[in-house]
Structures are given as structure tokens and as C-alpha cells.
Simulated scan of single mutants.
Amino acid sequence: MPVMQPTLTTADYAQLLSHLHAVVHPLEAQLLTLGLPNVFDLQRRTKAALLRRDLTWFPAVPTLPSVPATLAGVAEGLGALYVLEGATLGGQVISRHLHHTLGLTPERGGAYFFGYGSSTRQMWQTFSHAMNQWVPQDDQLRVIAGAHSTFQLFEHRLQELLS
């Protein structure tokens, strides 16, 4: 992602947020309809609101059309959630970079990448434990398919930034 470039500008960052929101918002909306087991604490893990909050710091950025998510069921949804939760780990590094290069903080345009802050490791461990305990072996390929399709959604949307 271009977010780690030392030449990143606030305009570049705002565009990235808009592209991410176009994927994360519809994806989380669909996840909320799938009836994921409560052990995954989905309400606490959604981050589209953080993206919307960050975007308020950059009012000139146009809203992009949503990228529709097509998750076939709970197993695929867990794969998508795996991708979203995994991104919070990398977000910690990105958050520090954004603070250093653009002066962003969780309160001032950097909430999405800050994620859970100091609780990120614990949230990941809780999620990972739930995945290991809850996902039956028969569903593992569908979970992987959900993760793969989610990566493709992000790749498709973010390619526009690189072209």
C-alpha cells in the first residue's frame, strides 16, 4: 500500500481512506447479516465507523462507490473477518508511520489504522483462539475462500490508487 511511502501526502492518505471505506463498509455490513457466532464479538470489531470518522478530517475527498461483498455464508464471513482483523496488526506499524510523517493521531484522522491501540494484540489473540476453537475442519476451505475473495476485493479497489 502506498501509505508507507515517505512521500505520502494528506491528499494521498485521504484517497486511500476513501478506497478502503468503499470495501470495508459493505463487507462489514454483510458480515453483520451472516449471524456470526457471538464468540467473535463482531460489533466490537467493525471499523467502517473509524474510516468515516477519519474521512471527516479530509472533507474534499469524494465518496467512492461501494465494492459489493459476496460472502456465501458464515465460514466465508470468518475468512473475511480474518483479513480485516489481520489488517489491525499491520495497522499498528502504519499508525506510527502516519503519526511520524503526517502528524495524524487516533483523534485526528488516524483512528482506522490505530485500530484497537494497545489492545490490538489481545484482540488478535482472542480472535485467533475463537477461530481455532470454532471453525470445524470441514469449513476450513470455505474460510480460506472467504479470505481470498476479501483480499481480491481490496486488491481490486487499491489497484486504482497505483494506476
Rank of each mutant, 00 (worst) to 15 (best):
34 L>P: 08
44 R>N: 09
18 S>I: 07
145 A>Q: 12
73 G>S: 06
36 L>Y: 06
21 H>R: 14
75 A>N: 09
135 V>N: 08
29 A>L: 04
140 Q>C: 14
108 R>K: 14
116 Y>A: 05
10 T>C: 09
60 A>F: 03
1 M>V: 12
160 E>D: 12
107 E>I: 02
43 Q>L: 04
71 L>K: 03
86 G>T: 02
50 L>Y: 02
7 T>E: 12
142 R>F: 02
21 H>C: 04
48 A>I: 02
18 S>W: 04
67 V>L: 10
79 G>T: 11
75 A>V: 09
142 R>A: 15
90 G>D: 06
134 W>Q: 15
130 A>I: 03
91 G>R: 11
13 Y>H: 07
104 L>F: 03
4 M>L: 15
98 L>E: 11
97 H>I: 00
27 L>V: 07
114 F>L: 10
52 R>P: 07
116 Y>L: 01
57 W>M: 14
41 D>M: 09
6 P>L: 11
150 T>M: 05
14 A>D: 03
58 F>A: 04
106 P>H: 11
135 V>A: 06
126 T>H: 08
147 A>K: 00
65 P>H: 10
108 R>P: 00
111 A>F: 00
48 A>E: 07
131 M>P: 11
19 H>K: 13
71 L>D: 01
27 L>S: 10
13 Y>C: 04
28 E>G: 07
62 P>W: 07
153 L>W: 03
124 W>I: 00
60 A>I: 05
80 A>N: 01
23 V>L: 02
55 L>I: 07
52 R>H: 13
53 R>H: 12
160 E>Q: 15
54 D>M: 01
134 W>N: 11
150 T>V: 08
53 R>V: 00
78 L>Y: 13
117 G>Y: 02
62 P>E: 03
152 Q>N: 13
90 G>K: 12
114 F>M: 06
26 P>S: 07
151 F>L: 14
46 T>D: 00
132 N>C: 09
99 H>K: 15
17 L>C: 05
122 Q>S: 10
123 M>E: 15
12 D>Y: 05
150 T>G: 02
1 M>S: 15
29 A>I: 00
27 L>M: 11
143 V>K: 04
149 S>W: 03
45 R>N: 01
56 T>Q: 08
161 L>D: 13
134 W>Y: 09
13 Y>Q: 06
28 E>D: 04
36 L>Q: 01
32 L>F: 03
78 L>W: 13
18 S>N: 04
163 S>H: 15
93 V>N: 07
76 E>N: 04
144 I>C: 10
161 L>A: 07
68 P>A: 09
86 G>V: 02
162 L>M: 13
70 T>D: 14
85 E>W: 01
130 A>C: 06
50 L>R: 05
110 G>A: 09
105 T>W: 09
129 H>M: 07
30 Q>I: 10
11 A>V: 11
32 L>S: 12
120 T>F: 01
82 Y>N: 06
92 Q>D: 01
136 P>F: 00
157 R>T: 06
129 H>G: 02
105 T>K: 09
148 H>W: 14
67 V>K: 02
151 F>W: 04
17 L>H: 05
82 Y>W: 11
54 D>F: 00
19 H>R: 15
141 L>A: 15
62 P>T: 09
33 T>S: 12
8 L>F: 07
136 P>S: 10
61 V>T: 15
48 A>F: 08
